[in-house]
Computed example of a mutant assay.
Amino acid sequence: MAVTTIALHVEPDTLGAVDASIALPLALAEAHSAHVAALVFAASVYRPEPPGGDAEMPETELAAHEDGVLLHVRAALETRGLRFEVRGRSSFAYGVGEVLADQMRVSDLGVMSFGSGADIGKRFVANGGIFSSGRPMLLVPPSHAAASPPSRVIVAWDASTAAVRAVHGALPLMKRADSVTVVSVTDDKEFRPGQSAVELTHLLARHGAKANFRPVQRGSGGVTRAILDAAREAQADLLVMGAVRHAPLHNLVFGSATMDLLDQGPTLPTLLAA
């Protein structure tokens, strides 16, 4: 698999925040010579703070602001010499929750900025991309403005079908990375032959990735905390993991790494696949 097309969701914001949110996806597009389909629209009702006070920006000014962001994104893509298309909210005649998922179906990778405290609109768009597109989704924290592809990758491996899809979706990125560490929480579940993280590292090595295995313990903080601690210790700049949507009762009783991630917001760029 190669990354030939990136579906990029851009949330209208200050131009500085927009530049930060598109730095990594544009670096990926450059590294892979990928086409970028940039979708510029607010996931929910967006009200940038007006220059002179606390009143809400009128709808006409809001639309003008979004148009300005669209032109700004177009200029950034042109400056980098990328192949691209840019579409604003007037291009869509249906709900914004479906827009990114639909574009991802005809792309190799979806990307959006997503952090802690994301409102219901952004959660809706992210969930659509992750669970309805059939493609991997890269969530980038708003504070992450690195303009280079990831070099140290952590793979959260539990042998689930979602983890398999995430690994294969991330292969083009892992093959270019300086290191790939496969992490399994060994006291969380048993792995049969063919499911082991060691065997996965062999597969990744055959694809050209510099892969190694690291077992970790679940501990009192749970699976999510164990994985994030391992990522921090490895100074990882990309986390790869499967995304699973459980029933609410299951989440309440057993917990869910996916819901923990969406509730708390990723602390580093995270590629998810369902």
Rank of each mutant, 00 (worst) to 15 (best):
G95R: 02
S44Q: 13
F213K: 04
S220L: 11
A20V: 00
P215N: 00
E66C: 06
G169Y: 07
S113Q: 13
G95M: 01
V182Q: 04
A163G: 12
A209M: 03
A34C: 09
L70K: 07
G222R: 01
R176N: 10
P48S: 01
D263L: 13
A93E: 12
L271G: 07
D188V: 10
H32M: 08
G16V: 00
V180R: 02
R152K: 12
R83S: 14
G134I: 02
M137I: 03
A236Y: 08
G121M: 06
L39F: 09
A38Q: 13
A55L: 14
E11G: 01
L82G: 06
A230W: 08
L262Q: 07
S151A: 11
V164S: 12
I120Y: 13
G68T: 01
Q235C: 07
R123Y: 05
H202C: 04
L8P: 02
M259E: 15
A197S: 14
V223D: 07
E11F: 06
V180E: 05
S220C: 01
M104F: 07
M1H: 14
R87Y: 01
N212T: 14
G81V: 02
S196T: 15
V111T: 08
V183K: 00
T4R: 15
A93F: 12
L139R: 06
V180G: 02
V216P: 04
A101N: 01
Y46H: 10
V106M: 13
Q103M: 05
H144L: 07
D108F: 02
E49P: 04
T14Q: 00
